[in-house]
Structure formats: structure tokens, C-alpha cells
């Protein structure tokens, strides 16, 4: 049992997007600030800092969580994944491509959080109904799109991943 003093920074060693990283954090430092300002990963956005908007959602040990309601020191020894980890070898993954295809984003500020929620959600719910998708999405606020494109993109990726047929709909 180690007591981390308020006024000092303490080492935080964790896996971030598959690599071991170490940073330093006061106990009160929020994970959202730690990722953005100390780890340099500004893809995770901050929209409310009270857990409602969902913009800061990241994966902690594979589970979608609010980074603004998590302390940096809490992820010591854990595995954290952010939006920067989704594209592989520079190629957008299927979810990202579907978001682009379906105009699932406009300003893009809420997008990273939604992508991370979907990553967790689709892993645990391979064949969701549209109602399930919308239910999961109630944990995110998007002010631009009206959600139509987001829902379509997720449903399509779920169908593709689970092997059911979907029309190819690539424009570009």
C-alpha cells in the first residue's frame, strides 16, 4: 500500500497503444489531461469533464471508459488504448472507413470517443441490433450529425465483421 502525496508527481507506467510508457502525474491529474498533455496524444478530446459527453472515452483494459473521470495514477500497470491506435500501418481500419463512407462525422470532435466505444462494444456484441447500437451511443453527444451516419457505419461494420452480406458502398 503506497500513499501517493498530493503535491508530488509520481511515476505512472502503463501500456499505451501497445507500448510501455512512463509518465509522471500528481494524484489529481485526470487521465484525459495526462494523455493529451504528457503523452502528446491529442486525439482524445475533452468536452465536459463530468462524464456526460463521451468525447474523452478511451479503452482501459479493453473497456470503454471516460478518461475525464479517471485519474492518471489509476492506469498505472494497466493497458490504455486511444484513437491513435486504430489505424494499422497507416491504413484506416474498417470502422474508421465506414465512418468516412457514411459521413459519420462533421467537426470530428466527438468522433474519437465514439470510435473507442464502438471498438469495445463490437468486440463484446458482434451482432447488435440497431436499437442496441443506439443504446450504446446514448453515452455520447454529437452536435453535428444527428447520429444517422454514425449508426449506419456501426451497423455496417458489425454486419461485415460477422460475415453477413452488405452492399459495397465505397464512393471514392
Amino acid at each position: 500500500m503506497k500513499r501517493l502525496d498530493a503535491g508530488r508527481s509520481h511515476p505512472v507506467t502503463f501500456r499505451l497503444n501497445g507500448r510501455e510508457r512512463t509518465g509522471h502525474a500528481e494524484p489529481r491529474l485526470l487521465l484525459s489531461d495526462f494523455l493529451r498533455h504528457d503523452m502528446g496524444l491529442t486525439g482524445t478530446h475533452v468536452g465536459c469533464e463530468h462524464g456526460v459527453c463521451g468525447a474523452c472515452t478511451v479503452l482501459i483494459d479493453g473497456h470503454a471508459c471516460r478518461a475525464c473521470l479517471t485519474l492518471a495514477v489509476q492506469v498505472d500497470g494497466r493497458d490504455v488504448e486511444t484513437v491513435e491506435n486504430l489505424a494499422e500501418d497507416g491504413v484506416l481500419n474498417d470502422l474508421q472507413q465506414a465512418f468516412r463512407r457514411h459521413h459519420a462525422l462533421q467537426c470530428g470532435f466527438c468522433t474519437a470517443g465514439i470510435l473507442m466505444s464502438c471498438t469495445d462494444f463490437l468486440a463484446r456484441n458482434p451482432r447488435p441490433r440497431e436499437a442496441d447500437v443506439r443504446d450504446m451511443l446514448t453515452g455520447h453527444l454529437c452536435r453535428c450529425t444527428g447520429y444517422t451516419g454514425i449508426v449506419r457505419a456501426i451497423v455496417e461494420v458489425a454486419e461485415q465483421r460477422s460475415g453477413s452480406t452488405t452492399e459495397e458502398n465505397e464512393h471514392v
Binding site: V46, E84, L105, G108, F109, T111, V172
Partner: peptide, 21 residues
């Protein structure tokens, strides 16, 4: 024409350049 957006590639990777970034 209906076309995808040039903006999206960076935004989907978390590489947007918003004011706080």
C-alpha cells in the same frame, strides 16, 4: 456528386488540429 470528405482521414486518426491541440 456525393463524395466522402477530405477532412475525415486526419480526424478519424485523432490527428485533428483543434485549438487546444
Amino acid at each position: 456528386e456525393r463524395q466522402t470528405r477530405l477532412e475525415d482521414d486526419a480526424l478519424l486518426r485523432g490527428l485533428g488540429q483543434y485549438a487546444d491541440d
